[in-house]
Each structure stands twice: as structure tokens, then as C-alpha cells.
Design a protein around this nucleic acid. Structure first.
Lengths: 347, 347
DNA sequence: AGTGCTTGTGAGAGCGCTCTCACGAATCCG
DNA sequence: CGGATTCGTGAGAGCGCTCTCACAAGCACT
């Protein structure tokens, strides 16, 4: 359909290994050995090849190498969110950053993709299974999305951020201790004498949302009380979601004096709703968030929150994936990193 | 040096075009034609191939295709900054976002790379010239960095964000009207009766920094006065840079009553320094930024700024690059997009 | 019936690399 | 000093695809 010319835009044809070998006076095999750092080459041959490479600006054709090795030395960073969400949430950006660093550190490249629509997913599947990436870092898995299973089925190693809702037995993932974090936050609220501790949850089709809620429940029940469902308001990790959930919550239970929000962004929404209702944050109502994004500390008043080790999360995912790709076993299928409560002014 | 197994992790060997053709009862050539959407195939053959592909979960090997076509259907997004800067500056994030959208819209993939150290640059050069990407979107070019020239020299089409300091004749770039923006901001300050209009510049090894300063100079001179160099304070587009530049400025010229900052981030630093010196922003001193990042409007008081069309910039760069790759000519080597002044509370 | 076109198809030659295998030369050991 | 290793090397066979070319079949004109 396109009228694109079939061959790239290269001015003169790029030198091949053949050319390099000829110039260095060795065989293709030996030239290849030098370039890959194979040990079994004489010092003489090595320097001849290196010199020739310099002289003719030889650059190996990665596609050809990839074709025979079956490796591309790049991994995909896939986010299943809208661009809007991806770029509005510092959590994703933090993960992208640490993944990019870790990938670069391993001498690989990062292919950055965000998919929303089902057809994008199909396209990505073809792309990944086609061998342009050796593995996939998958973020923000919703519901019972089968993408990781399908990728693994096609032979593409995949590591998830966050425990999957289904298939947790067989999939590889790195997660923060969301249950523990929810418990920590709620216990802190309870310990400071709050009577009506509510929670604004994340999306309940995501494991992180469920787990943070589970932590909340555990803490409440450990305190000897039963969970009052009217204190549980469903949100979705965004500012708008937190705001709406809080508005609904306040209508139901004007007596709340503490809120555990399942994300910092949601907590910002909570703060706004609280303020607009005339309440004083930290005094009338205590608030705790989750994530510890940079803005949390800059917030006025500074937000008490559960810190996720975002950099470590991204680092760990990436290393795990690369280890899998390179066949280093045995590796832990699941890694859960600890979180910590950062007490600031709102609780 | 690695002990990696030589073949991927695929459980059973992926089906090849050969397998597909055999199953569909046609030749490899015909199967290939169907997959590429070549017109000259009978309806009968087409459906047979499609069916077979479905049945055996056939996915074409992209490396093999790439080897013969010389195309990879992916482009690199390269930022020459530290990770810190890249992720702290909404301008870069906005560019990444729009580039990712545009690239995906064209059915291509985005390889995201940030390089700081010279050896990273070399590695990237090898990677790009090796054919894993068809072209490069290059952001944040400093000084007389020869990377774009070298890429083009190796046959890799490159489009820059921002006019390069050297080689502007032969390189392709998309830029915002930085000179016009600087002029606009300064004129606004002058028109509102400000007497001592200072500027906190960007880094002067970047064209955007130079141009915004040039716009400032033009406006001052058009107002009939000479530029007072003590009112020009060199910063670097960051909050810290803006803060430091302002501190120095205030020491020199306590009488300033207006500041044009070369970026919004720098403007935030200016505001802080001004506030800490006991001045009232918008009243004692007017401030105008540049970029119109989201935080500019949320700032208290809301920041008056020059809006760059970030989304359009990224979109245009990407389209230009892809058009070049696909050989659509003639195309404009340089594109300059207009900016507009967004008047809010600080000026 | 002959000539020319279009249309759909398959055979086969690569694309540039890696990797196995075989082989001569150098080194080692009993 | 002969046999066994080791070492460095080159020949050659692919990796899985695309693309050119040739060709057979069908159709429309002379």
C-alpha cells in the first residue's frame, strides 16, 4: 500500500563482515570472533581486524546477527494504560526511569510501548513474538488480562509489575508489599486514636488495589472491630477518582476522621475534597497516601504516605527479566519488596 | 564471557514461513505476499494462508524480514541528558509522549534511550547504524555535539528537536519560535510599564537558550533602550538554576521589577528566590516563564508563560522522520512552530 | 490462429551474520 | 619420539525472510 522505496536511505552500501575480513586479511569467522570478543583469536589477527573496522567504519548488522542468534538485545517496557495515565502518574515514570537505567546498564535497549486498545495488544504480540525484543516488562495489569500468558506461550519471557490476579502460580512478578503497606497505614491511623478510619481504594480489578484494601481490612480487624463497608469507597489511583470517592464517602459518613488512600494521587483528591468540605486536614481528618511520589513531600501540608521502593522495583524487574533471558536459573518467580511508612504532616 | 544459552527460550521452535506455506498448500513466495498485503494473490490463496497462520499461530520473524528489507520499523527517541533531567522536565516527557503516540500511529515502535557519557554515545551509534532503528529523534543537543552529523553520515536519518548550533544548513530539525517567544514575553513586561526587565537565561550552549535570550534583547532594543548586561543572569532551565541565577541577579540589581525566565522550571526557581527575598511576585516583580508545562497553571500564583506547542512539536518531528525514512520528498528541512503568550497572574 | 497483455504463482538467489566442524600447527606427556 | 591435546583458523551451512524472474494460464485484440 505504501509507496516507500524498498531499500533504506544509505548513501553507499554499508561495509559487511566480508569486506572487513578481506581488508584485515582473515576469514569472516575470525573477524566475527574478534568482534564478539571470542577468546580463541591470536593477538595479531585481533589487531588487524580492529584496525580494519576503524578504517572502514564497520558496524555489524544487528538484524543479521539477530537472525542467527535469536537474540535482539532489547526488551520491551509495556504499559497497559492510556498515554494520559502513563504520563500523569509518577509511579509509571519512576518505573520507566529505573527500567531504562537497568536495561542500559546491561547493554540492552528499551522499547517503550503503551497500549490501550485491543488491536494495539495484538500488534504488540506480533511484534514481541517476532523477535524484536527478547522479553517484556509489563506494567499495570488489569483484571484477567491474558497478555502475559500469551506472551509466555509464544516463548517471550515476561516479568510483571505487581502480582497478577490470575495465573500467579506460573507468572513472574515483582511487587511491593501492598498488603503490609495498607496494614501499616491503617494501624498508624488507629494508633493515633482515630475512630472512623475510612479508605479510598484503588481500582479493584488490579491486584495492588485489592491488596491495599486487604491490608486495611486486616488492620481494622486486628484492632478488634469489624470492617464497616460504608467506610470503604472505591476509587482508581487518580486525583479525580480520589476526589469523587471522597465526596461520596463524606455524604455517607460525615463522621470520618481518617482516610487511607490507596495512592498518593488519590490522596491529593482526598485532600481537595476534604478541604472543600471545610475540614482541616491532619486535624479534623488524618490522611495517608501510598507510593511516596516526589509531589507528596512538596504538598502543603506534606503528605504522610507509604513509600514504595520504585527504583528498586524497576531495577529488580529488569534484572530478573534479563537473567531469565540469559538463562540464569534458578530464579525466584516472585519477589515482594518491603514498604515503609513515611510520617509527615497529614497523619 | 556470558554463559547464556545460544538459542532463545522458545519451548518448541517457532513456525516459519516454510511451515505456513506447506500447511496452506502454497509456495513461500505466495504466503509472504499474503502477509505483506501484496495485491497479486488470488482470494483462494489468501484465505488459505490466513487460515493456516491462525491455526499454527504463525508470527513472522522480524529479524529475517529486517535483514532483507533493511527496515526495522522502529525509531529511536534519544535524549542527551541525565536521567534526572529527562524525568524532571515535563518538556521532555511531553515530547516523549507525543512521539510515542505518533510512532505508534504509524505502526512503528519507539526505542527509548538516554545517553550521558561519551561511551553511551558510541554504543548508541553502533546500535543505530546497525539497523535496529530506521531513524533517530534527537533531543537536547548541546554545543557542537557532532552526533547528528555522524548519524547522518552512517545513513541514519535524524530529526532534531531544536535548531542545532552548528550544521543548521544540512540537518533536519523542528523548533518552536524561541526568538519570537522571548520577544513576546519581554514586550509584555515592557508594555506593562516595568522599568528594569531582567532575564534568567537557559544554558547558552543550547540554541533554545541563545534564542530566547536573543528575543529578549530584540524586544529591549526595540523599546529604544540598550541591553543592560547586569540584568542578564545565566541559568540552565532547571529550578535550581533559576534560583541561583536570581539570587545572583538580586545581589547585582536589587531594583529589578520584572524577570523573563527561559523555562517554567527556571521560573519556579525565580519565584522562590524572589519570595525568599521578601518581594511579592506579580506586584513588586513580574515574572514570565517559557514552555507552559502543566504545573505552570497550578502554581500559586499561576504563572504567566510562553506556551510551546509540545504535542505538535513531537508529532511534527516524528512525522518528518517517518516521511524521510519512507522516502517521501521534498520535505522541509526546518520547521518552526509558533508560540503564544499565556497571561496569568505573575505578569 | 497468432500476438500481446495481464494475472497469479513458484523456484531460487540472496540479505549479513554466527556457529559447527575439520584441519594443520604447536604443545604436551609418558 | 609417537600419540594425544590444545590452539587458531577457514570453509561452509544455514537463520527466515523478500524479491526478482520466469512461466503457465487466461483473455483480448488483430
Amino acid at each position: 500500500m505504501t509507496t516507500a522505496p524498498r531499500k533504506g536511505t544509505r548513501v553507499r552500501p554499508a561495509p559487511t563482515l566480508e569486506d572487513l575480513a578481506a581488508r584485515a586479511g582473515v576469514s569472516r569467522a575470525t573477524a566475527s570472533r574478534v568482534l564478539r570478543g571470542d577468546s580463541k583469536v591470536s593477538e595479531h589477527a585481533r589487531s588487524a581486524v580492529l584496525e580494519a573496522a576503524q578504517a572502514i567504519s564497520y558496524v555489524p548488522n544487528l538484524a543479521a546477527r539477530s537472525l542467527v542468534t535469536g537474540r535482539s538485545d532489547s526488551v520491551a517496557f509495556l504499559v497497559e494504560e492510556t498515554e494520559e495515565r502513563m504520563f500523569a502518574d509518577p509511579f509509571f515514570l519512576g518505573m520507566l526511569r529505573s527500567a531504562q537505567e537497568a536495561v542500559a546498564g546491561a547493554g540492552q535497549q528499551l522499547v517503550f510501548t503503551v497500549v490501550n486498545r485491543p488491536e494495539d495488544q495484538e500488534r504488540f504480540l506480533t511484534y514481541a513474538a517476532g523477535g524484536h525484543v527478547d522479553g517484556v516488562l509489563l506494567l499495570s495489569l488489569h483484571g484477567k488480562d491474558q497478555l502475559p500468558q500469551r506472551l509466555e506461550g509464544l516463548g517471550v519471557p515476561t516479568v510483571l509489575s505487581g502480582r497478577p490476579l490470575s495465573g500467579r502460580r506460573r507468572l513472574w512478578y515483582v511487587d511491593a508489599d501492598n498488603i503490609g503497606g495498607g496494614r501499616l497505614a491503617t494501624e498508624h491511623l488507629l494508633a493515633s486514636g482515630r475512630q472512623h478510619v475510612a479508605t479510598v481504594t484503588g481500582p479493584l480489578d488490579m491486584c495492588a488495589g485489592q491488596d491495599r484494601l486487604a491490608g486495611y481490612r486486616t488492620a481494622i480487624e486486628a484492632g478488634g472491630r469489624a470492617v464497616d463497608e460504608s467506610l470503604v469507597s472505591v476509587g482508581d489511583f487518580t486525583v479525580a477518582g480520589g476526589y469523587a470517592a471522597t465526596a461520596a464517602l463524606l455524604r455517607r459518613r460525615p463522621d470520618v476522621d481518617a482516610v487511607f488512600a490507596a495512592s498518593d494521587l488519590a490522596a491529593f483528591g482526598v485532600l481537595r475534597a476534604l478541604r472543600e468540605s471545610g475540614r482541616t486536614v491532619g486535624d479534623d481528618v488524618a490522611v495517608i497516601g501510598f507510593d511516596d511520589i516526589p509531589a507528596a513531600a512538596e504538598q502543603e501540608p506534606a503528605l504522610t504516605t507509604v513509600r514504595q521502593p520504585i527504583a528498586a522495583l524497576g531495577m529488580t524487574m529488569t534484572r530478573l527479566l534479563i537473567d531469565r533471558i540469559e538463562g540464569r536459573e534458578p530464579l525466584p518467580r516472585r519477589t515482594v519488596l518491603p514498604v515503609e511508612l513515611v510520617v509527615r504532616r497529614t497523619a
